[in-house]
Design a protein around this nucleic acid. Sequence first.
DNA 1: TATTGTTATACTCTATAACTATA
DNA 2: TATAGTTATAGAGTATAACAATA
Lengths: 150, 150
Amino acid sequence: MTETHSLVGALNPLVGYHLRRASAVFAADFAAAVEGTGMRQVLIGILAVVAASPGINQGAVGRILGIKRANMVSLINELIDAGMIVRETDPTDRRAFTLTLSPAGTAMLDDCTRRIEAHEDQLLAGFSAAEKAMLLDLLGRIEKRAAPTD
Amino acid sequence: MTETHSLVGALNPLVGYHLRRASAVFAADFAAAVEGTGMRQVLIGILAVVAASPGINQGAVGRILGIKRANMVSLINELIDAGMIVRETDPTDRRAFTLTLSPAGTAMLDDCTRRIEAHEDQLLAGFSAAEKAMLLDLLGRIEKRAAPTD
DNA sequence: TATTGTTATACTCTATAACTATA
DNA sequence: TATAGTTATAGAGTATAACAATA
């Protein structure tokens, strides 16, 4: 039996519920951190993945971030229109595009990363370094259970 | 300096990113657990909160779950149409509705709760009881930083 | 004047299916 | 036949503003 007396009743013992709510807190914090930049979580994710593997193609970026091929298209177009990503046809496979960051893209990623880290430090002010490391370890072990997106 | 060599580059040190991904794993697991019931995360959340506080009104449910008043309307209507929630005007405040679960709502909540817990046990099979407790504690401390939704 | 619930609306995210061009 | 990218579309989640009825 799993009885509780909290306001959320049966949700209280569920890890998924608490992940969802904690994630929402960080999402709101993210939004505040990057306010005025026009960036969103997905876009920063794409910039970070392209920065980590210059020349990577669209499909690979999507697979890493759990975004479907079909949904990558407009996201990449947005970043190209904003002058942050450069798309060139891959000479070794003419179906594919290689993606790299422009200087503006690199600058935006760096700026946002700094802002987000500063905000996260605030949000996690009550956490010891060991607690933060523990949290990242536990989350990492959960992430490994992810199914391929596409 | 915060350099990394992972596939997600600058995202790797960010707690918010890993919360998002871990949360997505649980969301997919949730969907599998309740498949065929027609239930979704928000709907189960509402059922659980109403079950925990019978006679609660719509606005209060939304405040607890972080759902805006405007978005509560159609969700509650869905649950009433499905015969899971009973809505009556509050005799002490004729602007408000009191919500309670019907027997069907109680049965659905119980069924889904059992399914979800079984799925979560699978997903967290590699976690000791202490690790799960630690995760819930850390997430709970993050949730406390949530801003009011409405 | 504030609060409960409502309507209308819009944007983002996510998902599927069908298409093209290359491999 | 399989893969990279595209288009079209639809559902769900979330956000704002304006309104009616009641407090």
